[in-house]
Design a protein around this nucleic acid. Structure first.
Lengths: 332, 332
DNA sequence: ACACGGAAGTAACGCGCGTTATTAAAGCGC
DNA sequence: GCGCTTTAATAACGCGCGTTACTTCCGTGT
C-alpha cells in the first residue's frame, strides 16, 4: 500500500495525494478531488510510511531519551511526561537505558544518532552533576534532573529549596516548633537544597535552626530508623514533635521508630517525606504527607525545550527549576 | 555526511562502501580497499542513516511496545528486558503508554503501523484477559502478562500456580503448618493460580487446606491489615503462625497488624509476599521474603517470540509461562 | 593465440515520499 | 479572435541506501 496505489485508485497523480495528505498551502485542491482521495485512502487502508516521509522531508521526527534505569519509579514518569508532549506534536521518543554503564550509554547514543534524532533528553535518577559523551554535542541536548559541570547545556531541575521550605512550612503551620530533619548525604544537591529550604522556613517563623536536630540518613530506611531513634530519645522537653525526612524510604524507617515507642502519627509526632514514592507514601499507615518530585513535568518541559532548540529558536532560560508540589495525606 | 561522501573520500564507488558496511557475502573486497573505506568513515565521522537503510532494505527494525502505564514499577522491567534483547539484534522499541484509554491505544497503534513496526508487544500491569484493537492483526503480536479471550494470540504469563506453591512450600519448610493466606480478588487469574499453588503445597505436605485461613484482601494495605487482624485474633491454638500475602502492599498491612500485637517477624509470625515491589519489600523491616514477577524475563521472551514471528518461523508454544523466583529476605 | 573463470568494482534501479518546476485547461477583458 | 492570469494537476528530481546486473582486468590452461 503506497501513495501511488492511492493515486491510481483515486484517478489522480501521486503528487496530488501528497498535497492533500500534507495540507500543502498554496496547492489549490477542489473539494471534490480531496474527497475522492480521502475516500481512496480509506478504502485501501493506506498508511503513510513514516520512515520514507522522514527521509524525503529530512526530518526524522525522533527525539532520543537516555535514562540510567527504566526500572525505577521515576524514569517512567519522565517518559510519560515526555511522551505525552511529544506524540501530540507527531514526534516520537527513542528510549534507551544506560544501566549506568558508559559503554551502553555510548552505544545508545550511536544508535540514536544513526536514527537522526533531532534532539536528546538525558535524565538521571537522582539530582546530580553529569558529564556526557561528546557525541551528544552533535545534536541539541537537554538535561533532566541533572546538570553538566561545565554549565554549558540547558537543564531542568526540581526546586529542592522550595521543596524543603514547603515541607517545613507545613509542619510549622501545624503548630510544630521543634522539627527534626533526617537528611540525605550532605554533599548532594538534594540535601543541600532541602536543608536550605528547611532553615529558611524556620527563620521566617522566627526560629533559629538547631543543627543538632539535623541528622544525615544515607537514604535507607534502616539508617533513618537509627536517626529517628536518636532524635526521639532526646530528653522530652527537647524532643522534636515532627520529623521532616528527606525521602520516603527514610520516612518508612522513621515510622517504625515512632511506632516502637508507642507514639502515634501524626498525634504525637508528625512526619513529612520527600519524593512521593507512591508505593510507599500511599500505603504507609497512616498515609504519608510528602513532596512530589515533578518528574512528569520535567519530562514535558524537556520536550518543550528540545522542540524549541530543534526549531532553531533560542531558549529563554538555560536552567529551569520546577516546583515540587506538596501532597497532603495523613501524617501531619 | 552520506555514503557518497565516504565513497568519494576513499576513491571508490558508493556500492563498494555499502558492501563493506554490510559485510556483503560474495563481495570480494581486498583488505587494502576495506581499510581505506573504514578509514574514510572514521575520518569523516560518517554514520549510516538508519531510516534510509530501513527504506531501502524494507526492514524497519522496529518493534512496538504498548503498555498501560509506564509509571508503575512493572512496565519499566518489561521495557528493560525487551530493550536489552532487542538492541542486541539492532532492533528498536517504539514505546507507547495507553494510560488505559482506548483512544490513546488506537492512536499509538496507528503511529506504530506508520512506522512499519515488524511486531507488537502488548503488556498489561496485571495478569488478565484483554481484547486488542483489530488493527493489531496487521502485524505479529505477542501478549505480555495478559491473554486474549479468544486465545488466538501468543502470550507470556507468570506462573502463578508455581509461585503460590513455592511461597507456601517455603513456609512449610520453615516448620509452619497453619498458614494464613491473604488473597486478592478471588476472581482474577493471579488469585486463582496462587491459591491453587498454596493448596497443592499444603496437600503435598499432608495438610488439608482450611478455607477459613484464606481471606480476600482487595490488594490494599488497609484491607490486608483488617484481614491479618482477623486471622491473628483467632484463638491461640488456631492462630496461623505464618501469613502468605498475595502481594507486597498487603504484606505491608499485615506487618502493621503483627507488630501492633507485639508479635515479632519472623519469630512469632512469618510472612511471605508476592510481586517483589522493591520499594516495599526491600525496605520493610524486616525485609520481606517474596516472589518476583518475572517481568524482565517476560519482556525478553516477548522480543524473542516476536523476532521468530517476524522472521516467519512458527512458534513452538503459543502460551508460555515463566517461573516466579523466590527472593529470600528476612521475614521467614 | 584464444577462451575462460574469477576478482574487483561500478552503473543503475527502486524503496516511498516531499517538493519544485512545468503544463494544460479554464476564465477574463478587450 | 488574442494575450493574460488563475486554477488544477502532473512529471521529474532527490532524500540515503540495498541490491542486481554488468563491465573490466588479470591470470590460467590449452
Amino acid at each position: 500500500m503506497t501513495m501511488s496505489d492511492v493515486a491510481r485508485h483515486a484517478g489522480v497523480s501521486r503528487t496530488t495525494v501528497s498535497f492533500v495528505l500534507n495540507d500543502k498551502p498554496g496547492a489549490a485542491i477542489p473539494e471534490e478531488t480531496r474527497r475522492r482521495i480521502l475516500a481512496a485512502i480509506d478504502e485501501l487502508g493506506y498508511r503513510p510510511n513514516a520512515g520514507a516521509r522522514a527521509l524525503a522531508a529530512n526530518r526524522s521526527g525522533w527525539f532520543g531519551l537516555i535514562t540510567e534505569i527504566v526500572t525505577g519509579p521515576f524514569a517512567g514518569e519522565v517518559i510519560t511526561g515526555a511522551q505525552s508532549r511529544a506524540w501530540g506534536d507527531r514526534r516520537f521518543l527513542l528510549i534507551a537505558a544506560s544501566e549506568g554503564d558508559p559503554a551502553q550509554e555510548a552505544a545508545a547514543l550511536d544508535q540514536m544518532l544513526e536514527h537522526r534524532v533531532e534532539g536528546l533528553l538525558y535524565a538521571t535518577t537522582w539530582h546530580r552533576a553529569v558529564t556526557l559523551p561528546k557525541a551528544a554535542r552533535e545534536v541539541p541536548t537537554v538535561l533532566v534532573n541533572c546538570y553538566d559541570a561545565e554549565g554549558e547545556l540547558p537543564c531542568i531541575l526540581p526546586d529542592e529549596v522550595s521543596g524543603g521550605y514547603k515541607a517545613t512550612r507545613r509542619l510549622l503551620d501545624a503548630g510544630h516548633t521543634r522539627i527534626g530533619f533526617i537528611n540525605l548525604d550532605p554533599a548532594i544537591p538534594a540535601a543541600i537544597g532541602r536543608r536550605e529550604g528547611y532553615e529558611r522556613a524556620l527563620r521566617e517563623a522566627g526560629i533559629t535552626p538547631d543543627p543538632s536536630l539535623v541528622v544525615p540518613g544515607w537514604a535507607t530506611a534502616d539508617s533513618a530508623y537509627d536517626a529517628a531513634c536518636e532524635l526521639l530519645d532526646r530528653p522530652a522537653a527537647d524532643r522534636p514533635t515532627a520529623l521532616f525526612c528527606a525521602n520516603d524510604r527514610m520516612a518508612m524507617g522513621a515510622y517504625d521508630a515512632i511506632k516502637e515507642r508507642g507514639l502515634r502519627i501524626p498525634h504525637d509526632v508528625a512526619v513529612v517525606g520527600f519524593d512521593n514514592q507512591e508505593l510507599i507514601a500511599a500505603y504507609l499507615r497512616p498515609k504519608l504527607t510528602t513532596l512530589a518530585l515533578p518528574f512528569e513535568a520535567m519530562g514535558t518541559k524537556g520536550v518543550d525545550m528540545l522542540a524549541a532548540l530543534a526549531a532553531g529558536q533560542p531558549l529563554d532560560t538555560r536552567r529551569v527549576t520546577i516546583d515540587c508540589p506538596l501532597l497532603e495525606r495523613s501524617s501531619v
